[in-house]
Simulated scan of single mutants.
Amino acid sequence: MKRERIEELIAQEVEQIIEGTALELVDVEYVREKNWYLRVFIDKEGGVGLDDCQAVSEKLSAVLDETDPITDNYLLEVSSPGLDRILKKDKDFIRYAGRDVDIHFFKPYQGTKDMVAVLAGKSADGMLTVRVDGNEETIDMKEISQIRLHIDF
């Protein structure tokens, strides 16, 4: 089974597990590093705790043991997306409008591969609107490899 199909299948299972709770599914990753990892990122208003992650992990493990959709050996990790979470879903762009974001480009954009900007929004046609140094810019999402919340230290 292809990696993308596994991620879709796991996302559907997790959505069923968290239905009716305050939890939301942020992302699912099935990646090979040294080993295969199945990573599930969950969140809720006020942040998730260890108990939330453990409960989802136990329920998902039981489902995966029963259905066995993944033939490879893998490690399951359930966690929060972190303070510098990746923005992927339309609701992320709505929720975090007005916040600073780190934008990483596939190739240089206006001479840089990385930019910090204020998120203004994302249109239905895939255009990201940001403010940089007080000026509003519109960037095609096809040029962007990743957008994360910016953390100021």
Rank of each mutant, 00 (worst) to 15 (best):
M1F: 12
K2N: 13
R3Y: 03
R3T: 14
R5T: 12
I6A: 03
E8I: 11
L9N: 10
L9K: 15
L9D: 07
L9W: 12
A11H: 10
Q16D: 13
Q16A: 12
I18N: 10
T21D: 11
A22Q: 14
A22D: 15
L23P: 02
L23E: 10
E24M: 08
E29C: 02
E29V: 07
Y30G: 03
V31R: 15
E33G: 06
K34H: 13
W36L: 00
W36M: 05
Y37T: 11
V40L: 12
F41C: 03
K44N: 09
K44Q: 15
G47R: 14
G49H: 13
L50Y: 14
D52A: 11
D52C: 12
Q54L: 15
Q54P: 01
K59W: 04
L60W: 03
V63W: 08
L64H: 05
L64D: 01
E66S: 13
I70M: 00
T71P: 00
D72P: 00
N73V: 11
V78R: 02
V78T: 05
P81R: 06
L83E: 03
R85P: 06
I86P: 08
L87D: 07
D92I: 02
F93T: 02
I94V: 15
I94N: 10
R95P: 02
D102E: 12
K107I: 06
Y109S: 01
Q110S: 11
G111M: 09
T112C: 03
K113G: 05
V116T: 15
V118Q: 14
L119N: 06
L119G: 06
G121I: 06
G121T: 07
G121C: 06
K122L: 10
S123Q: 08
D125N: 11
D125I: 05
M127W: 02
T129G: 02
R131I: 09
G134N: 03
E137G: 00
I139W: 01
I139F: 04
I139Y: 01
K142T: 11
I144H: 00
Q146R: 15
I147C: 01
L149S: 10
I151Q: 10
D152A: 12
F153H: 07
